[in-house]
């Protein structure tokens, strides 16, 4: 359900209107009290809230990581080289996202679309890797209900995967909407907001990768 909220926060981009205006001249953006746009402030609050969501899931995992059935625990099942590569791919997508935001700032539409698409492709590679990883774990006998470890592992990484997927949908939607000129409001800001979300999801993965994969159980 929180993913619905994710999109909600995203589609908010055009809600700032000029109704709060001082004088209401109808043109441009009225100055806000803090100087930050409504959308950006709203996105930061939403991401703050998301920290607690992942905090709860990570705590659950940390509590249950040792409660695995024999031979199917964290130390036996993880394929560190594989996950390291897919983590690297995801982190690189943050770089391409930065390039997209920078291009949006220069109003360079061609490069915005290019880098957003590349970001989405890198994200999709990561999600594809996760699907492959889940499938191979499942083949080895680690189902969702196999043990407390597996339930909490799939819940945590699954939630993250859903967040990345929602991010990919948003990236591609922004590309499509830019192509058809269907973005109401400030285009550069929309790209920046998607970027904030995308970086957040990457940062969460750094925490997950460290706590789940790197630290031995």
């Amino acid at each position: 359900m929180s993913d619905a909220a994710t999109l909600e926060a995203q589609v908010a981009h055009d809600d700032h209107g000029d109704h709060g205006g001082h004088g209401g001249n109808g043109a441009g953006h009225p100055p806000t009290t803090t100087g930050l746009s409504h959308n950006k402030l709203g996105m930061w609050l939403f991401l703050g809230s998301e920290c607690l969501l992942f905090g709860g899931l990570i705590s659950t995992y940390m509590l249950y990581r040792g409660r695995a059935s024999e031979n199917l625990g964290p130390d036996q099942i993880y394929d560190l080289p594989f996950t390291s590569v897919s983590s690297f791919v995801l982190l690189m997508s943050s770089l391409t996202m930065v390039l997209a935001v920078s291009a949006a700032g220069r109003k360079d539409v061609r490069n915005v679309k290019l880098w957003l698409t590349v970001t989405a492709l890198l994200g999709a590679t990561f999600v594809g890797g996760q699907v492959y990883e889940f499938t191979s774990f499942y083949r080895e006998g680690l189902g969702f209900t196999t043990s407390l470890f597996s339930s909490s592992f799939y819940a945590l990484t699954g939630f993250h995967g859903v967040h990345v997927s929602v991010g990919i949908i948003m990236l591609l939607a922004v590309v499509g909407m830019i192509s058809r000129d269907r973005i109401p409001g400030d285009r550069a800001e929309v790209v920046e907001l998607v970027g904030l979300y995308w970086h957040f999801v990457d940062i969460v993965w750094i925490v997950i990768f460290t706590l789940v994969y790197l630290i031995p159980a």
């Binding site: 359900m1 809230s49 998301e50 920290c51 607690l52 969501l53 709860g56 969702f144 339930s151």
Partner: peptide, 21 residues
């Protein structure tokens, strides 16, 4: 709210998808 969201999700996983949280 996000903390109780996690709790509700775990509860739903427990009841509808046979997890054992």
């Amino acid at each position: 709210i996000p903390v109780i969201t996690v709790a509700f999700f775990l509860l739903t996983f427990q009841r509808s998808f046979d997890a054992a949280f």
